[in-house]
Computed example of a mutant assay.
Amino acid sequence: MQATPADPSTPDAFLTPVEHLFVRNHLGPPPELDASAWTLTVEGLVERPLWLDLAALRGLARRRLTAFHECFGNPSRPDVPTRAVANLEWSGVALADVLDLAAPRPQARHIWFEGADRGSYAGEGGLRYLKDLPLEQARDEVLLADTVNGEPLPRRHGFPLRAVAPRLFATNSVKWLTRVVLSERRPEHLFTTRLYTRVPPGGGAARPVREVDVNSKLLGPRDGQRVTAGTHELTGRAWSYEPVVAVEVAVDDDGWRPTLLQPRGPGPVWQRFALPCRLSPGPHRIRCRATDARGRVQPPSGARNAVHAVEVVAV
């Protein structure tokens, strides 16, 4: 997996500037696609296979979606935190509208999304990037997006079209989308059944990486920052598959204190939290942890969504 550029600290703004959005490429440089020649095929268990160009797609009803967007991290190290996250406004067409044109057959249970990127990964060559979702879940939630934050998709983020699967890890939001297949089964593939799987807490069979974990990130002050001693507003963002209902902050050895948390509202966006706090001269360790509506709490350590901590010096 290539990551360029290095992830900057996410700005404390509701929408993340596209230039600060993380980049993840599994199979080499982004493909160079000619928008005038590009098509999306919809095939498999459908009554009416489709070959749609951009003009045909843009002739369908337009939808907007504002949602957080989180990278799962290195699939070979599923317990290592990355906290690469953004909040973005996408626009495009609902996958459901495209499926209505294709008319899925009753036996279709899964939908495969294939990107135009090709290459090698983990010692396996001749790969294409492929992900799958349960058909009904994808029909209800997935957007086929051609813009981000009001501008055409940049090449590095999936031009000319990508899938956006809100509340799911970004590995499921396939970039450079060229092919959609409806099937009665899941595909056997490196990125579907061998990587991007994990064993749930308590054990059991490995499951595909889909629903995001409850998580939070301190954004101000930044890790390693020198600040003036005195009162500061400790701020950050929290997100989860379900709405986040509480975020707590701890400074040094003090106990956890509740923050002022903005509600999520109807859309799957990240939520700002803030806490005024006086920092005396010297070094300080600041931590945050979130709780979601399902009752899940960030673990203290040993997980990809472990409690986030920053260290600052007040002078």
Score class of each variant (00 low, 15 high):
residue 132 D to T: 14
residue 187 P to M: 04
residue 152 P to V: 03
residue 206 A to T: 01
residue 262 Q to F: 05
residue 186 R to V: 10
residue 282 G to C: 10
residue 152 P to K: 05
residue 83 R to H: 14
residue 155 R to E: 05
residue 36 S to T: 04
residue 57 L to F: 11
residue 164 V to G: 05
residue 190 L to E: 06
residue 128 R to N: 12
residue 272 R to Y: 00
residue 123 G to W: 04
residue 154 P to D: 03
residue 131 K to I: 02
residue 137 Q to K: 10
residue 98 V to D: 05
residue 221 P to M: 06
residue 61 A to Y: 01
residue 262 Q to P: 00
residue 72 F to I: 11
residue 226 R to M: 08
residue 18 V to I: 15
residue 300 P to E: 11
residue 211 E to S: 14
residue 258 P to M: 02
residue 180 V to T: 04
residue 241 Y to H: 15
residue 299 P to D: 09
residue 114 E to N: 05
residue 101 L to W: 07
residue 143 L to Y: 07
residue 2 Q to F: 08
residue 73 G to S: 06
residue 17 P to E: 15
residue 244 V to F: 00
residue 120 S to T: 11
residue 304 R to N: 05
residue 306 A to F: 10
residue 258 P to V: 01
residue 196 Y to T: 04
residue 55 A to G: 12
residue 16 T to D: 06
residue 219 L to P: 01
residue 174 V to W: 14
residue 276 P to N: 04
residue 273 F to W: 05
residue 134 P to D: 15
residue 147 T to W: 05
residue 240 S to N: 10
residue 288 C to P: 01
residue 86 A to R: 04
residue 302 G to Q: 13
residue 186 R to F: 07
residue 74 N to S: 09
residue 63 R to E: 14
residue 1 M to T: 10
residue 134 P to W: 01
residue 75 P to K: 01
residue 98 V to G: 02
residue 9 S to E: 12
residue 179 R to P: 08
residue 237 R to H: 13
residue 80 V to D: 12
residue 85 V to L: 14
residue 205 A to G: 08
residue 23 V to K: 04
residue 193 T to K: 08
residue 261 L to C: 00
residue 20 H to V: 08
residue 118 R to A: 10
residue 300 P to A: 07
residue 271 Q to E: 04
residue 279 L to C: 04
residue 97 D to V: 12
residue 63 R to V: 07
residue 85 V to S: 13
residue 18 V to W: 10
residue 208 P to Y: 10
residue 77 R to Q: 14
residue 300 P to D: 11
residue 283 P to V: 09
residue 181 V to C: 07
residue 279 L to K: 00
residue 277 C to Y: 04
residue 216 S to N: 09
residue 291 T to E: 14
residue 73 G to E: 07
residue 213 D to T: 09
residue 9 S to I: 13
residue 276 P to F: 01
residue 143 L to M: 08
residue 14 F to E: 11
residue 186 R to D: 01
residue 201 P to Y: 03
residue 205 A to I: 05
residue 182 L to T: 07
residue 281 P to I: 05
residue 293 A to N: 03
residue 141 E to F: 03
residue 289 R to E: 07
